[in-house]
Amino acid sequence: MLLIPDSVVRFFHRMASPPHFYAFTERLMPWLTVIFLLLTAAGLYGGLYLAPPDYQQGDSYRIIYIHVPSAWMSLFIYVVMAIAGAIGLIWRIKLAEIVAISSAPVGAGFTFIALVTGSLWGKPMWGAWWVWDARLTSELILLFLYLGVIGLYGAIDDKRVASKAVAILALVGVVNIPIIHYSVEWWNTLHQGPTVTKMDKPSIHVSMLIPLLLMALSFKLYYLIAMLQRARTELLMRERNSQWVRTMVLENEQ
């Protein structure tokens, strides 16, 4: 605690209060949207017009500007969900619970996009819509893990209890994801090896890499926007009987 500056601690304490969170995210939203639109425009322009075609795959490689960032996000969001769930379990912070469950549908969406774009790319490249390749399969299992989280949350009526259940499940899942990933990898592999995350020099040209990183950033912002919107409605739902929601609604009606 001594290492963390006082202002940061105060920021987090204030963010844990629902009315403050609601008002703060409302002010944040236009900024996030503008940055997201700029990044997406720049990333797509760079990826679809400026970047040269691949010497082997021609123009069809360009789907990576959607596919790869989605695949990154699918894992990233699961980890965020587990961390938020753990914070909710340990410190009983309502907003962490809400962030955890609001992340799940967005993560499932990105996983689905990664699967669909992978399949579209696979048809001309591998000659099949679907192959039982390691990374495809573990992505599919990740989708099932997301659907399990969403299903469990929907099945429990008391949403505070449901959030706890979701947090436990997400933590179990996060321990299992590497095990599942490596077991599937070991089981079979056909997928093209990672080209960006190599520790030495990435084996992708810089004119293709920059749009890819821009798209990755833009997807992160999209996640933030979508997750916060879901969190805000979820928050209103849960706090519908509280004073601050009532005052806010009355003020808006006038």
Binding site: G151, A155, L169, I180, S183, W187
Partner: peptide
């Protein structure tokens, strides 16, 4: 109605053992 949801929760976690 926990039965259906149970399979969705548990079966993906069984994958490594199966493999």
């Amino acid at each position: 109605r926990g039965g259906m949801i149970l399979s969705l929760l548990v079966l993906p976690l069984y994958v490594p053992v199966l493999i």
